[in-house]
């Protein structure tokens, strides 16, 4: 038993140290103090930050709008091949390299494809736009929210609280509004945070489908970090530090919000 404990503890410690060192090594970029100030005053960086944060927030809101009903359906309705559908919606996007998604969308929405032609006839062009970035990010990030919410809705179903609410006269909507949603607040906040963070960090799919080079429209911080890494490592590390600080701060705010709900 002692040997088992020592074994588990050793492996866990290695992993924890690995993660902590990885995170804190980023902060060595603090030594480039003047560079940080220079970047924080740069209009290009501020615009990239704005694009990154606003696009991730829009992706989170879209994911909530479509993800909550999707998770509710997966958790509460029984139908044929539900397991397969859940794997497609929740698990497959996790395992897809984002660059592959970008390429797929590029192919799907190019002007020679049926969808691309249809959109062009309607005067809509998606490739290399802000909304192309939103599309890629949503595909990659929404499953984080849907997965967490499906688990929560499923565990709620097992408690039979929704059945009791209905037996007391609540309609399906009132049950959802008065029981399911309030009892899923933490899952909603936690899932939204993960979805937002994933969208913020997305880069490969954005570069392929949205270009990620137009300042203020498609150029995001992660894209600049990747491009800078090829020419100037200090610049890349400094930008990464700025993005990570903002990201961690916002995730801490999500965490505080989640704990307040408990």
């Amino acid at each position: 038993m002692e040997l088992f404990k020592a074994f588990m503890l050793t492996l866990a410690s290695f992993f924890i140290v690995f993660v902590i060192i990885s995170i804190f090594y980023l902060f060595t970029a603090l030594s480039y103090g003047t560079l940080i100030i220079e970047y924080l005053l740069s209009q290009q960086i501020l615009l990239a930050l704005w694009v990154s944060i606003s696009s991730s927030t829009i992706v989170m809101l879209i994911s909530l709008l479509f993800g909550v009903p999707t998770a509710w359906l997966l958790a509460n309705k029984d139908f044929k091949n539900k397991g397969l559908l859940e794997t497609l919606i929740v698990d497959v996007p996790h395992s897809f390299p984002p660059g592959v998604i970008g390429t797929t969308y590029l192919f799907m929405f190019q002007t020679t494809s049926p969808i691309g032609t249809l959109l062009q006839n309607l005067g809509i062009s998606l490739v290399n736009t802000f909304w192309a970035m939103i599309l890629v990010k949503t595909f990659i990030s929404a499953p984080f929210l849907i997965g967490i919410l499906t688990m929560r809705f499923r565990s709620l179903r097992e408690t039979e609280l929704e059945v009791i609410a209905k037996s007391l006269g609540a309609s399906e909507f009132k049950t959802f509004y008065t029981i399911t949603l309030p009892l899923s607040k933490n899952a909603i906040v936690g899932g939204s945070a993960r979805c937002w963070a994933r969208a913020l960090g997305e880069v490969a799919g954005t570069i392929v489908f949205a270009g990620a080079i137009i300042p203020g429209i498609t150029q995001t911080m992660p894209a600049i970090i990747v491009f800078e890494a090829q020419t100037s490592l200090p610049a890349s590390l400094t930008l990464a530090l700025i993005l990570a600080t903002i990201s961690i701060t916002i995730l801490i705010l999500f965490k505080i919000l989640s704990e307040r709900n408990q």
Binding site: S167, L168, L183
Partner: peptide, 28 residues
């Protein structure tokens, strides 16, 4: 189920944890 007007008490009581006693009783 919501139109049958059946009172149901399950094994684990099924009290709504986010509501107090008054709110639980008054829910229906």
């Amino acid at each position: 189920i919501s139109e049958r007007n059946v009172g149901f008490v399950p094994q684990n009581f099924g009290l709504f944890p986010h509501l107090n006693v008054n709110e639980n009783i008054g829910y229906g």
